[in-house]
Design a protein around this nucleic acid. Structure first.
Length: 281
DNA sequence: ACTCAGGGTCGAC
DNA sequence: GTCGACCCTGAG
């Protein structure tokens, strides 16, 4: 039984786990506790080595490869520093946040998380997502937030009115729609990974409450795409103010342009810009 | 108490 | 393509 795993790589836990990609990691004195799959884990940095502890009630063996994949550790993005060294704005952001990693999370939870993100803020998204998992999910650990995220069936059992009571507001019917479309197979999550980008967007945006920006986030954080460039209010600001993009373009056009420019660097560049603009670096 | 804005999207025009 | 509506909550 492997209850502790160490990985000799670097990650900024704050910006990666709690910077707006994922909404259910809880910081307790620098250690981040959260759920991956059906296990409760605590992740910390000790002497520049990543330490992952299993805190589940029913512990299963930790799989190092899966954990590395979740944490975006398989690949190294140091090359970005060199590639963009002549761009003052980007090189500053890259160097300031060089241990920021893009996670590969459970697609369903990401779908609900980013539907919830619409005109909201990170702290409120976290509140909603945690309340929902507590109300509808199976408890798998001893702490308040140790729950598996509820599946579509369980969310339908909870119902729109209860989602509104939890604070989801006008997003509640969107979440019900996503759940319905999963149940009746209008949205087949396990198939989306095989589609090309255009069809992925088309499938996801069939769901009420998922537009281009939310779909791009879902594809990035839930389906491991890295050639996606979600454009929100912050990223729009960065692209226009600091990278010379045309302010007359709408967010979808900006996303297309940025995606063409940055190709498979897109997801990282986008996240650097998001993080940078939000913390006004 | 009141205004404002926060990882947008939808439907009507 | 543009515009108002949409829920709620914490900050000022």
């Amino acid at each position: 039984m492997t209850n502790i795993i160490t990985i000799n790589e670097r990650i900024n836990l704050q910006s990666s786990l709690d910077g707006g990609q994922a909404f259910r990691w809880h910081n307790n004195k620098g250690k981040y506790r959260g759920v991956i799959g059906n296990q409760v884990l605590t992740i910390s940095n000790e002497n520049n080595i990543i330490k992952i502890e299993n805190n589940s009630m029913n512990k299963e063996n930790l799989n190092k490869l899966n954990l590395k994949s979740y944490l975006g550790l398989g690949t190294n993005q140091d090359y970005l520093k060199i590639k963009y060294k002549d761009n003052k704005y980007l090189s500053k952001l890259i160097n300031l946040n060089d241990d920021l990693k893009i996670l590969s999370q459970d697609p369903w939870e990401v779908i609900i998380g980013f539907i919830t993100s619409s005109v909201s803020n990170i702290s409120k998204i976290k509140k909603c997502m945690n309340s929902l998992s507590i109300l509808g999910g199976d408890r798998i650990g001893s702490s308040d937030y140790d729950y598996i995220f509820p599946d579509a069936r369980k969310i339908l059992d909870i119902g729109e009115e209860n989602l509104r009571k939890l604070g989801f507001g006008f997003r509640a019917p969107y979440i019900i729609d996503a759940s319905n479309k999963v149940i009746n197979k209008e949205l087949e999550i396990e198939k989306i990974i095989k589609y090309d980008y255009k069809n992925q967007l088309q499938s996801l945006t069939k769901v009420n409450g998922i537009g281009r920006k939310v779909a791009d986030c879902i594809l990035t954080y839930g389906f491991s795409r890295r050639d996606t460039f979600p454009v929100d209010r912050w990223v729009r600001k960065g692209l226009i103010s600091n990278l010379g993009f045309n302010k007359n373009l709408n967010n979808e056009k900006l996303a297309e342009k940025a995606r063409l420019k940055f190709k498979t660097d897109s997801a990282y560049i986008q996240q650097y810009i998001f993080y940078g603009e939000k913390t006004s670096l």
